[in-house]
Design a binder for these strands. Sequence first.
DNA 1: CCCTTTGGTCTGCTCAACGAACTATTCCTC
DNA 2: GAGGAATAGTTCGTTGAGCAGACCAAAGGG
Lengths: 169, 169
Amino acid sequence: MALGTDYETQDCSLARALEIVGERWTMLILRETFFGVRRFTDFQQRLDISKAVLTQRLSTLVDAGVLERQPRGGRTDYVLTEAGLALWPSLHALIRWGDGRSDPVRRRRIFSHSGCGTDIDEFGRCPACGSVPGPTDILVRPGPGLGTPTRTDPISLALRDERALLTPF
Amino acid sequence: MALGTDYETQDCSLARALEIVGERWTMLILRETFFGVRRFTDFQQRLDISKAVLTQRLSTLVDAGVLERQPRGGRTDYVLTEAGLALWPSLHALIRWGDGRSDPVRRRRIFSHSGCGTDIDEFGRCPACGSVPGPTDILVRPGPGLGTPTRTDPISLALRDERALLTPF
DNA sequence: CCCTTTGGTCTGCTCAACGAACTATTCCTC
DNA sequence: GAGGAATAGTTCGTTGAGCAGACCAAAGGG
């Protein structure tokens, strides 16, 4: 971000957070990781992102401790660390804000608490339990705003059904 | 962001949100508006941002309906709209994530519920009431991680004391 | 009537993102 | 074990966005 590296002059830690997750593409990459995407090629195909930029963003996220590289034979898995999982509230809030700006009933993805099956509210709470479930306890399913799916790659097909977040493909 | 304008091919509304608030500087500008900053010159001085970029960001936010221009005699106030106020959960989550990544007890800004005075938790809830207060019901005060303040502009001085969010300077 | 404040625009430069081509390693198949 | 495909990148030339700094127009005050 080149906001300057002297964070001590920044009044709050937002600049520090944005230095890591505020760069172009980074949040979209992280959304994919929460949906279960782990591989370089899958990120690239689903986001239509330049390979050079994807390489740089993944490295930044690994260096920042948000993602972890896990060699799996000939390939590499990029998996969320604990710090990465802690980003879920930020990501969820942004998704809900983006959804709410059009027609509130036409949401694209709906998140529910896997414990009790209740849809979570705009603040991330499960209205039934009153808890704020973490990403390991959340299911995603397509919402009415998603429209007719056009992508036919295996990941998009799997996301047409209800799935637990973080389930690898 | 130039992520392409064909949002229909995007699986969820995150790209739409990032098209508006995901650009460099935008979230920092919005943080300032929640703290009560409203004027061009104040944004520019507090953020050390290029005037050309600030102009473009403010225009984007106004066009997107996040901020509203309010002429005040010879000057212009940039004020959060309802859609802008709805960004508070996203902003709060990012601030908390940035804070939590260093030492959790050394937070820079602490937010509390003005109704009951209780500090709000990392999910934005007031532990006493169980509610999720909106920005109009939240106070900010410096946290132990802020260190010795170096900035001496009027806005930074005012932020050394507890203040309600959105209070203009 | 001049000077300051405010809220910008304009210019030239640099650096990051882009698409496309190329590469190195591993795995699978024959 | 040879050939091809899949994976995870790197390299290159071009384009576009951000930067600092100079400049500018309108409003208000003395």
